[in-house]
Design a protein around this nucleic acid. Structure first.
Lengths: 192, 192
DNA sequence: ACATGAATCCTAGCATCGCTAGACAAGCAA
DNA sequence: TTGCTTGTCTAGCGATGCTAGGATTCATGT
């Protein structure tokens, strides 16, 4: 049995290597540069090996996305738990979210921009995605205001952050005023 | 001279045909289906003809985007001018914007999701893009609130709409609650 | 120790993509 | 009619995602 277990470990290890390499390559040169050939070469295996782990490129993007969702959730929770009061928690959440998107553009793309073949807002949504939304909900639910459904408020706030993140990264918004925009958004949307 | 003029007219006509066909194909089957071969076949010319009008596929996407920007601006202006009072104008603007994105997903993608090789928020930004932003600013500037720069407020509001539009279309948000989300957004962000 | 069979991996190739070079034809000027 | 420009097409390049089929390795049973 030990032999099989070792092989299984090695296989899992190689899968992590694939995902990590794809992510690294995407952050360095963009997702367009993440071709199956380049990826295979970097992990020092042939192309078909990728397809013994993932159905195709989409699933690799999806794997990076799930990894990113977990990190985003953790970052948000760390930031909010270190802040005092609902207003400050929400501000910290917003800054952390936008910071994550700015620092990990490829991962953010994998999560929300590209097709990673993941289901959202459904029964079979992967756990990390649900949990990331839950992390937002924990702090945002506090400031939804009377008579406003916390989940719906979280969706709206999240959408606003997503819009700021993508438009900024696409060059549609100048990054200098980023902080001012966050202040405005938090002041208006969050009910103390 | 008349011969040259006729040729020029025909050339311009063919260029419109290319853009219209690309848009139609994109709306029908998505931008992935808009390949230079398929596009060439539909306009009943060979591939290289496309490259005598546009530098490449990117520029074709850009042309569709500009067309869309003009339509979006017109739709927003029509909706806002028909509404009474700042609050209602902004609500109409939001609904119209999201409706446009939902009804013309391919055009919206060309505008804000894909790389059409267009410059944004800069000196050499094409006129239709500037004008679309101006159309938003006209109504949103009214409800920015004291001491808040109208342009910055417009950016934030626009980003929120953009987030709602993209997340809804990507299946990240369920469309049933769309109207409720718009109400919430307008109520909180707009200062009467 | 050795043969067997399964698991594992790679070479080679397919269809398709965006894009371009070079041949060919059509139409204008002399 | 003869040249020349202008326009268009055929054919092809390199690169993409993905896959079939052969080769190799390796654990296993005798």
């Amino acid at each position: 049995m030990s032999v099989q277990e070792r092989k299984q470990r090695e296989r899992a290890e190689r899968e992590r290597l694939i995902v990590a390499t794809a992510r690294e390559l995407a952050e360095q040169q963009g997702w367009d540069a993440v071709t199956t050939r380049r990826l295979a070469e970097r992990i020092e295996y042939s192309q078909p090996v990728l397809y013994s782990h993932f159905r195709g490129k989409r699933e690799i993007i999806g794997a990076v996305a799930l990894e990113g969702a977990a990190e985003l959730a953790a970052a948000v929770r760390a930031a909010t738990s270190a802040a005092d009061g609902p207003r400050e928690r929400v501000a910290a959440l917003a800054r952390t979210y936008l910071d994550f998107a700015a620092r990990n553009p490829a991962v953010y793309d994998a999560l929300f921009q590209l097709d990673g073949g993941l289901a959202y807002a459904q029964e079979d949504t992967p756990e990390p995605l649900k949990d990331a939304f839950a992390a937002l909900l924990e702090s945002l639910g506090e400031v939804a205001g009377d008579g406003v459904h916390p989940g719906l408020f979280t969706e709206v706030f999240w959408a606003s952050l997503h819009g700021l993140a993508t438009l900024t990264r696409a060059g549609r918004l100048l990054p200098e005023e980023a902080e001012t925009r966050v202040e405005l958004l938090v002041d208006r949307l969050a009910v103390a």
